[in-house]
């Protein structure tokens, strides 16, 4: 069995940049491997370590621009997951890419189909930048296979995958036949940190660049447009000063009283 892992190269939310009009400058924010996708990689590695998988391939679509700078940034990031133990990476680069989860999922599905035979497709429950949680199940639909999300435990057994999944008010144990797509939560495991040796060895592993012509996609249309603006901090930001704790507490209670909040049960 081979495992495909969907890995998003997200913009790093800790380095948000804004222009003069307070708009998010996505093109200038550095990329990072979306945190929860590292958990998906880790889970794939654990399944392989149990002797249940032969090959692990990662699939990414470069969604935040396809300049040379972005491509090399992406390649370096993919080296991180290759160093964790992924065998090979596929990276879709297309200057004609038009933002929409619809196209991302179509591209991923076609890349996966073209790359080989994958029984289990793993992904993070959401990416840290958009937090949309759409792509895993869209890919499943595109491939015509089942989708189970929010996994916090996975067991591969006799052509099936048993998943313990986390829902709002319940925890479900579900079973699906392979092939299937499973998205995981951050709680499923702790992703390993590769050693220096592994990082060096990863330089030899392939990052395959895939172009539009390789997968034959119809032209993409603008179907989903957005403008993101920085949230202005509308908090007072008052630091309560005082020589003693008692003084600070008095002042805090006074300040809250002025806001109409009294701190004892009525």
């Amino acid at each position: 069995m081979n495992i495909a892992v969907l890995v998003k190269l997200s913009v790093d939310t800790s380095y948000m940049r804004l222009d003069q009009n307070n708009r998010v400058l996505f093109s200038e924010i550095p990329l990072k491997v979306s945190d929860i996708d590292r958990n998906a990689v880790e889970e794939a590695l654990r399944i392989k370590q149990q002797g249940l998988a032969n090959k692990i391939s990662s699939f990414s679509v470069l969604t935040w621009g396809s300049s040379d700078k972005r491509v090399s940034e992406a390649q370096n990031l993919l080296r991180e997951i290759l160093a964790m133990g992924v065998d090979e990476s596929y990276l879709y680069v297309d200057p004609g890419f038009v933002y929409s989860h619809l196209y991302t999922a179509k591209i991923l599905a076609r890349m996966i189909r073209k790359a080989g035979d994958y029984s289990l497709i793993l992904a993070g429950e959401a990416s840290i930048d958009g937090y949309s949680s759409q792509v895993p199940c869209r890919v499943a639909e595109e491939l015509g296979i089942p989708c189970v999300s929010y996994a916090r435990r996975i067991e591969v057994k006799e052509g099936k995958v048993i998943v313990e999944r986390d829902l709002e008010d319940s925890v479900e144990v579900v079973g699906v036949k392979l092939p299937a797509v499973v998205s995981v939560t951050r709680e499923i495991n702790t992703p390993r940190l590769p050693t220096l040796l592994q990082i060096r060895a990863a330089m030899r592993k392939p990052v395959n660049i895939i172009k539009a012509s390789d997968i034959g996609l119809e032209p993409m249309k603008k179907i989903h447009e957005f403008v993101a603006e920085g949230v202005k901090i509308q908090r007072k930001g008052v630091i309560i000063e005082g020589k003693t704790v008692d003084e600070k507490i008095e002042k805090l209670l006074e300040a809250l009283a002025k806001e109409g909040i009294t701190l004892y049960r009525g």
Binding site: S149, I223, H224
Partner: peptide, 23 residues
């Protein structure tokens, strides 16, 4: 946007070739 509906919504959107937003 419950967890189950996020799965269902994504799948339906893909089938009808539509964009979608969550939350």
């Amino acid at each position: 946007a419950t967890r189950i509906n996020k799965e269902a919504g994504a799948r339906v959107a893909q089938t009808i070739g539509a964009p979608a937003i969550t939350e």
